[in-house]
Design a protein around this nucleic acid. Structure first.
Lengths: 205, 205
DNA sequence: CCCAATAAATGCAACAACTCAACTTTTGTA
DNA sequence: TACAAAAGTTGAGTTGTTGCATTTATTGGG
């Protein structure tokens, strides 16, 4: 989805031709799908048509994307990886909420509302029930994964509700901030609360 | 689902034969579906088979239930209606959180873990991804509806986050309480927090 | 450099969920 | 009794998704 919208740093691992080709077809499929969806709407475009547009067989398409909805969120795995990395590989001395704030400002407030492609994408998702539901569950998975990483990094028990809560709010904050006049400011404020609450909690243990 | 597990008060409106028959076929379908699902698993039972077992055509089945998953949650609408009614028709002078607590204790902690049919139903849902996802979105819908009613009843703006938060926690509390040794006690405790927080908020406005 | 192991991609057919349009039966009502 | 609306049936279609046998391309090793 929307490749090139944020800088995607090429991993330090140079891929062989095989992996590169695989990634290429995957991208071709996702691009074709998004283009068609934006042109004519999610429900009006069939799998077979997408496969044709990307010049692959439907079988191949499903090797890359388990279900139709996943075509729209093809950066799902990348996003989750970046999110977890933001916490795990944060600079020395930086708190977890601070790391999450930086990540949110950097990757999730990208031209919120300004870029036309971005808003078109949002409208597509929000106006399609199947996609809305899928996205919801996607964020839920990310929340769970994040909670686990937070637990590891803070050496709290894995099932401590505080971890789940922090993960939940950290992912919810950018969404909630969209309404406000200055979203970036709103996010920063929200994270002040989280930072205070979290550190207070960490202190008296 | 699990009719007769909680006392279902027959609405004050006596139905004509037509509505009764409609409700009967609907019930027959839901019963057949749940029985088969529990016997052999959700994915192993097809729509046609359910329709046959209930002695209706597949098209009739889909007139009553929009998608396969809905067969399992056939009390969806009833549950939501009861939830909203619990707030709207609460006794004079009772706070909203208190009303929600009573509702939770009465309808959602029913023999949590004790009744075999109940746990079998839970296992079915939790072990079937499609059902887990569907249930998740179902609760989300209920949360949104509840938030709106809370806003109306408390004369707050419909989009006040406090309403959404109260709705969210009120529905989450019973789920979270299941782990604890005495779930009823855990629910009561959780609602104490909500009650305090909510009333404090209501006071200084 | 070739060979075998491996992995990606294909074509086709099938299944299961779901829809649609035309038609019959049942029911509430005048 | 007559009639309109609602419930149900029938059968054929569309669409997402999978299985299977087959082909093509890449890789690492002898």
């Amino acid at each position: 989805m929307l490749a090139g919208m944020t800088d995607t740093e090429t991993g330090p691992v140079p891929m062989g031709r095989r992996e590169r080709k695989k990634a290429a077809t995957r991208q071709a499929i996702a691009d074709a799908a998004l283009r068609l969806f934006l042109e004519r709407g999610y429900d009006a475009v069939g799998i077979r048509e997408i496969a044709d547009a990307a010049d692959v067989s439907t079988t191949t398409l499903f090797k890359h994307f388990p279900v139709k909805e996943a075509l729209v969120f093809d950066e799902d795995a990348d996003q989750e990886a970046r999110l977890l990395a933001a916490v795990r590989e944060r600079p020395e001395g930086q708190s977890i909420p601070a790391a999450l704030r930086e990540h949110a400002l950097r990757y999730r407030m990208a031209a919120a509302g300004a870029d036309a492609r971005f808003t078109a994408f949002f409208d597509l998702v929000n106006s399609t029930p199947a996609l809305r539901d899928y996205a919801q569950n996607m964020w839920l998975r990310h929340t769970a994964a994040l909670a686990q990483v937070i637990a590891e990094e803070s050496e709290l028990p894995a099932d401590d509700p505080a971890c789940a809560a922090l993960a939940h709010f950290a992912l919810e904050a950018p969404r909630a901030a969209r309404g406000h006049g200055d979203p970036r400011e709103a996010v920063i404020r929200a994270f002040e609360v989280l930072e205070n609450g979290w550190c207070a909690l960490a202190d008296h243990r």
